[in-house]
Design a protein around this nucleic acid. Sequence first.
DNA 1: GGCGATTTGTTCGTATGTATT
DNA 2: CAATACATACGAACAAATCGC
Lengths: 251, 251
Amino acid sequence: MTGATETTAESFERGGGIAVWRRIADAIEAEIAAGNMAQGDKLPTEATLAQRFGVNRHTVRRALAALAADGAVESTRGSGTFVGSARIPYPIGPSTRFSAIMTAEGHVAGAELIGAETVAASRVVAEALEIEEGAPVLQVKLKRLSDGMPVSLGTSFLPLPRFAGFPEALRAQGAVTPALKACGVQDYSRRETRISARLATGAEAATLQLEAERIVLMATGLNVDDAGVPIQFTEALFAASRIELVVGSGL
Amino acid sequence: MTGATETTAESFERGGGIAVWRRIADAIEAEIAAGNMAQGDKLPTEATLAQRFGVNRHTVRRALAALAADGAVESTRGSGTFVGSARIPYPIGPSTRFSAIMTAEGHVAGAELIGAETVAASRVVAEALEIEEGAPVLQVKLKRLSDGMPVSLGTSFLPLPRFAGFPEALRAQGAVTPALKACGVQDYSRRETRISARLATGAEAATLQLEAERIVLMATGLNVDDAGVPIQFTEALFAASRIELVVGSGL
DNA sequence: GGCGATTTGTTCGTATGTATT
DNA sequence: CAATACATACGAACAAATCGC
């Protein structure tokens, strides 16, 4: 590596307004953005960086953790820390079909049913599905895979008794659209999507095969059938380091 | 010697699969979700929580930091840690007008020009604006306010010489739409929006009046005039703790 | 308004666990 | 198996902001 643009310890002294770990994080990020490091390149070890910046290893770790949260870098225990990879575009629109999207991008799509159970509709779910609060709804959790790598973690609520046969159909078909068709839904579309971002909980991180403290994009929305009747209230989590949501673009 | 670490329901012993700080974070989040604590309520002090969970204060801080990143809690030095507040919906669509949105929601909108300078178009910008790479473009940075509180931080690129008078018009008008009109753009619309999430850099956090290490939603997009000619490549940052993006819904 | 106690923020030091090479 | 490298946790000290008296 070139030591030409190396930042010296001089500028990272303690007690200068902005925290040292943040200045280090920005410095490393700038280094990557400047194109000095390519995707997948290995960063110096934490110990090396600590020595280079003249700080404790904790301080470097704090900086690296901030960069790892959004995928700028990826750390692997025992191996090292590496420059992260680009995000896969994921179109969001009136007709969003996971399998179709991934196939079009050249990936192998898959869906794995994690669980299905009957629960009482919460206020939010009931309002969206236009049913009574407390009415029985089917809660389905599924993991979506692209080339075997978990991409999203979805929780859906479907009204009963209309979709009582959905879990079995999903298990049999392996994708949502044909399973809905088996329940008599010829076509469906997305009415509204709300997008927010937060950190993954422990269970979510484990399911998505994410390291700790990673950012997820949360897209909640309502699907309606061709008659405009709400059929599915969904909440999908995407690893922000792997996915970029795309809105519009002629869809 | 660890005999009498009575504490709460669960024991948070070391070395059991999932990290202690994560289990504590999930426990506190569950506590909030259960409705035991309302918006703005003060959490116990870090020292108290550390004692209660039988861990070091660092471990509690790690858990609280995870919750603070997405706004579940908010910490203030010298004061304490409090339960965070709800997010404001922000519609994204073909015709997104900040001032109109905020006024409709009952807020007072404002835009503050941070900087305007002529730069050479990068590959990404050039491609979007359909101009030559390296051609001069106007880079405008502005901060959008709602009721005086910073909501978003935007960077726009506009082709020259068409929009040479834009900064002056923006300064005079105080909003983007009339400023564009002054440059001869009768109407414009959004062609595509890409949404991702990451952590704010030091400078961004400062401008948005965010604490360190907070999550931001990044929406990049292209605006075209009524003739379909690209006029503005924009990148807007939103504090994920304050904003929720809304796509669709009859817009 | 001043001042000390409280509370969160940052950094260093140390030790140990665990996965990779 | 040993060395390397990241992950987690504890302890100590001090800085900086706030709050109550």
